[in-house]
Amino acid sequence: MNAFRFLGDMTHLFSVLVLLLKIYATKSCSGVSRKTQELYMVVFVARYMDLFTDYISLYNSVMKVVFITSSAAIVWCMRRHPQVRRTYDRDQDTFRHVVLVAASFVLALIFNERFTFREICWAFSIYLEAVAILPQLVLLQRSRNVDNLTGQYVLFLGAYRAFYILNWIYRYFTEGHTSRWIPWIAGLVQTALYADFFYYYFLSWKNNVKLELPA
């Protein structure tokens, strides 16, 4: 474990807590893409299957349980909670996220570390995570008013994988030069997708104005 990775995990955890706070405190999920939350739930289930087979550390196992249960809780809230589900922007959250799932799965069948069920699921989860934010970014561009908590949620979510990239660089130079193309390339794509959001978020912060993404 190195500082970059720990910072990344904490930023990731924080993004989930911010989203849970927003939904719980305001009893509203306006501006939040349910499709992105569903994709993240698939990412965590597909990647953390080894939760019951390989024990790596208490930290590792606890964080996996937290990510799976929190993403499931958010999806449940947006689908079933009587007050929250009413505030879901159904007609704005129109990204065809099934395409992302299919494309990631095909990619995982072609590019994986070993053609085994677990490795293909792992690669699938890495590819899917890289693009899972797309429905949320599209929704942000559509819903003009981005409330602070939703903006902070996306900001922390983008920052977490950026910290992971620093972690991979650090590990490459300190733990023997093993190349891990799959997470590296996917992580770069994932962080690049946030580039324009980071840019407009920074502008809104600098000029102290509401965050507005250009359509």
């Binding site: 990775r5 995990d9 390989d54 790596i56 964080m63 792992w122 023997g176 093993t178 891990r180």
Partner: peptide, 10 residues
Amino acid sequence: DSYAEKKDEL
């Protein structure tokens, strides 16, 4: 086993 085998990252 090698790092690549053991997925120790989240």
